[in-house]
Design a protein around this nucleic acid. Structure first.
Lengths: 196, 196
DNA sequence: ACCTGAACACCGTTCAAGT
DNA sequence: ACCTGAACACCGTTCAAGT
């Protein structure tokens, strides 16, 4: 029998860690503040000191997800000689994150009904998009990407990236189809539909 | 004071209609079986005759959404002389549906934690993808789309379509950015990133 | 066949009170 | 500053009973 510990300031972090574990193992429907509190050995009212309501905890979880995805994508950009290689690395990293964090990615992009509250999350997503735009800008400088407003190419690239990962997450594409489709997606991002 | 009506078999339909309205007006968090029953003037236990649990109602709602999106996309395919025109019509129709049914589209692609239960929904999404693949196949026959396995081009096209709509729905792109970005997305789907 | 009413075991949120 | 315990108004689900 352990004495009741005070969570000396780390309850907030403990709630987030535990919440992500529950999200992964039991799905978003099973996420309850009271159960979280029970799991961590605090009273059911304790979480409210750190998150004003359940949505605030979900938002914090989503934001942490964006930060980790950001790091994963930034790390993927070093490798690759050509534009297509670097693009492939970005897609690979995004898809890997999606497969390893399906429920979390879903949460990150879930429609919040209060638009003001999710401003921070939208900014985080746009920061991700900026990485795709930056990659395209590099490609333009090296002549591997066609001329034109960089957003006109970078935004659709990010869109394809996200759509592919989203289909992986929602099982529209099976894990095998994701693996075998990766090269086709990259080729399409580079060449589009049109004949050479 | 109206006498308590029996819903002579249409309670199921009434629940779905009302649920979609609540989803649209108050968001998914506000969707409660008990409130739905109250709104329709039946006891809180009545819905269980028609949906075994809340998830079953959500699944039925999502499935109805796929059917309507299916019709909207099928209707969009008549118009357009060139491949690019028909592709544009498809994107336009998908985006219009997304903007008009944001919460519903989100629900349609939300990760279900029970993979078996959502088999029907996955099939519905794949039927949508088949429309993109068919469009690409037509383009190949007319020589407007490059050679190669049709899925290698059709799947990424559907991916871009969905990713763009998904960003519209989750406010990563504002309504204005969606409008002004449409042409860029279509051009990218046709030409990709590479120089001509 | 379809619905009611009561019951059960949960929720999220708030707030005085404790340490 | 941080947490507890009780209270409130809700849930989803089940099941005997009614029509």
């Amino acid at each position: 029998m352990q004495t009741r510990r005070y969570h000396h300031g780390d309850l907030r972090a403990a709630l987030l860690t535990r919440a992500e574990r529950t999200l992964r193992e039991k799905g978003p429907g099973a996420l309850s503040l009271r159960e979280l509190a029970r799991d961590l050995g605090v009273s059911h009212a304790a979480p409210s000191r750190h998150f004003k309501d359940k949505q605030a905890l979900l938002d914090a979880l989503a934001l942490a997800g964006f930060e980790r995805l950001d790091e994963a994508l930034a790390g993927s950009r070093a490798a690759g000689e050509t534009f297509a290689d670097r693009l492939g690395g970005l897609v690979r990293a995004y898809v890997d994150f999606a497969l390893a964090n399906a429920e979390l990615l879903d949460l990150m992009y879930t429609v919040k009904h209060d638009p003001a509250a999710s401003e921070e999350l939208i900014t985080a997503a746009q920061r991700l998009g900026a990485m795709a735009v930056e990659l395209v800008a590099e490609g333009q400088r090296s002549g591997e990407v066609r001329e034109g407003p960089v957003d006109d190419i970078g935004m659709p690239v990010f869109t394809t990236l996200h759509g592919f990962a989203s289909f992986a997450v929602s099982s529209v594409l099976s894990a095998e189809e994701v693996e075998s489709g990766l090269d086709a997606v990259i080729a399409y991002m580079v060449r589009g539909c049109a004949p050479s």
